[in-house]
Design a binder for these strands. Structure first.
Length: 213
DNA sequence: CACTAGATTTTCT
DNA sequence: GAAAATCTAGTGG
């Protein structure tokens, strides 16, 4: 049987087009909430297609957000955060993990903004993700920012690529399986500064988020 | 379950 | 030198 959506006539072409750059051009707070329920698509070099529904995100600002990498200004690592919305910001942290972000518009008059993708509900290429992650528990394949990158083979080579491009190895597609009314917010996880900001968003009924309330 | 140590890069002090 | 937008394996209850 043919599982390739490119040839599925029931899927409208508009669903196959990646989310446009305008989607990312708003404030990180808006984009973080809007990304819940969208489909993250990763095309591996092998041509294999991995997909997951975003169920958890966090917004990061610039000079006004002490939890943000951009707080102290531009550096080689965070340079992508200061660039055009819609591009992918990948960083390496804690000596062993990669994290995936999408560059957004700016909060107020700040110079940088991004959204961290924190958890996915895997929907396609699950067997490949299991292999990359070394576990068969589907709820633990991508329920954390480091796990997403391991499950989808995301590393610094993808830093700066354009998620709004039709041919990008990472892009976003429209999807609407998560009702807006079921999105909740909370303080961000793992941050020690800026804990006053309620900038984490998640699907309250999803079993795929990194933490349940 | 809860808690802790260790993996080890980028950046700042 | 130390902390960080994290995760796992290990210990102990």
């Amino acid at each position: 049987m043919n599982q390739n959506n490119e040839t599925n006539p029931r899927k409208s072409p508009s669903l196959r087009r990646p989310l446009p750059r305008e989607f990312y051009s708003l404030s990180p707070l808006v984009v973080a909430k809007d990304l819940i329920g969208k489909k993250l698509v990763r095309i591996l070099e092998s041509g294999d297609r991995l997909e997951g529904i975003i169920v958890e995100t966090e917004a990061y600002g610039g000079s006004g957000d002490p939890a943000s990498h951009a707080f102290r200004g531009q550096t080689p690592r965070n340079a992508v955060m200061f660039g055009e919305p819609g591009h992918v910001y990948v960083y390496f942290t804690y000596g062993s993990h990669h994290c995936l972000n999408l560059v957004t518009g700016r909060f107020r008059s700040e110079l940088a903004g991004a959204v961290l993708v924190r958890a996915l509900q895997p929907t396609k290429g699950i067997n490949i993700m299991e292999e990359l992650r070394g576990t068969k528990d589907v709820h633990k394949l991508a329920n954390g920012p480091g796990k997403i990158c391991q499950a989808m083979s995301v590393d610094l080579e993808l830093n700066g690529c354009d998620a709004a491009s039709r041919t990008s190895p990472i892009r976003m597609e429209n999807q609407s399986i998560i009702p807006i009314s079921t999105i909740r917010s909370s303080p961000r996880i793992g941050v020690t500064n800026g804990t006053d900001k309620i900038w984490r968003f998640y699907a309250k009924d999803s079993a795929f988020v990194s933490r349940r309330s």
